[in-house]
Design a protein around this nucleic acid. Structure first.
Lengths: 221, 221
DNA sequence: AAAGTGTCGAATGTCGACATTTGGGGGCGC
DNA sequence: GCGCCCCCAAATGTCGACATTCGACACTTT
């Protein structure tokens, strides 16, 4: 059998999938023994995977009680998105001189493709495209520390909230919002780039938090 | 026996101390079995502590080989400090309206105390004071996500490089640099605050990286 | 002598089991 | 009927041992 790395890594992949597929939702408890039986392995690699993902903020751990999928309050959601905007805005601003016109053409095409996919209700592909768009942007800067934090936060938000993304904006909004990012980048005004990216994520965070609060209310009723 | 939390937490504390006391320096390998025997516990809690600290960036893990104290290159050091400046600058700018004149008096006193301690060669106390100064600043903002990242990065830099801090600046420089931060805060100009904090940490990062490179050269010779 | 190869030791990754602690459910008292 | 307390099952934290893998050393080969 080809070795796809250690068991721990496979457990992490499995949990990622569980989150993506909605089989694990915020607040759920992760039963180590059940996971161990299901994956046919012992609890040791599972515990290591969980402690790593706790570090990523995807789970929270209450000692002697258990590990739960992170359940963010409305303000925490906004905080996370604001921080994401801070990090990505700075990343992009720092690499502003490195984006070529070819890059912009590529990114512009992404924006158009987003709108098309949104029109066709291809939500999964749409979300992947949005992810690619932003990943492409913040990976251009050479600051590894910054990229690492941005990547982790991006993952966290993706896994916890991507389900809601499709309903946040209309296809046209989706396109224009991202084209606005490209437009400001092309002015090469670093400070403005930062501010626009921050606003971009702040708005998304507010909408996600709002949607999330509504869903919580429905659950209770 | 009093229960200071789980074994894992105690291992983490122990490793923190090892780093602080210089008994673990960048590049060192952590032998799990040796640690287990020394702490009279099994390897399980030690492995969990290590995976958590790997998440904090204090250690790096090579599968099937071992866990090592993180050894940053010069550019990575600068990257980390730049990111720190970004995070703390934004934190402070976001909480700018919440700082009272009493706060400023307190912080001003800290600056004076720093200079005094530096004059008296009280390096440990000096470092703690500097830490308190910045912790006080970035904890004022209400953004938990931001505080978490800032705190973790602060810890990482503290444990890996605090040894060099005492030789970075003269006592007078130390004071004036921090007073400059306070001065710009009092203007309530959020954008300027961010920029000044970024410059503050960029310069420190450059000096640390320089010092660090020198030390590496000496080691090799 | 340098490069490649094979072997061995040691450290990691993983396992199954035990002890300890928590949270809930049932029973008792008010 | 409501609230408190005790007890127990279940899940976590921890342990010691085994299998597997990597790195170093010595040996062979050119």
């Amino acid at each position: 059998m080809i070795d796809k790395g250690t068991y721990k890594d496979r457990v992490i992949e499995f949990l990622y999938d569980q989150l993506r597929q909605g089989e694990l939702t915020p607040g759920d408890k992760v039963l180590e023994l059940a996971l161990a039986k299901r994956l046919q392995i012992s609890r040791a690699p599972i515990r290591e995977a969980l402690t790593q993902m706790v570090g990523d903020g995807l789970f929270v751990c209450r000692p002697q009680v258990g590990t739960f999928v992170a359940s963010l309050s409305a303000s925490e959601i906004i905080d996370a998105y604001v921080t994401r905007g801070l990090l990505e805005g700075f990343s992009v601003a720092a690499a502003l001189q490195d984006f070529t016109s070819a890059d912009y053409q590529l990114l512009q095409a992404h924006c158009a493709a987003m709108e098309a996919l949104a029109d066709n209700q291809e939500q999964l592909a749409l979300i992947e495209l949005g992810r690619d768009f932003h990943t492409f942007l913040f990976h251009r800067c050479g600051n590894r520390q910054l990229i690492e934090y941005t990547q982790r936060l991006s993952s966290k938000l993706h896994l916890l909230f991507y389900k809601h993304w499709a309903s946040l904006y209309t296809p046209a909004e989706l396109r224009s919002r991202h084209e606005k990012l490209l437009a400001i980048m092309q002015t090469k005004d670093a400070m403005q780039v930062e501010l626009v990216f921050r606003a971009h994520y702040l708005e998304t965070g507010q909408r996600v938090a709002e949607l999330y609060a509504k869903k919580q209310q429905e659950k209770e009723s």
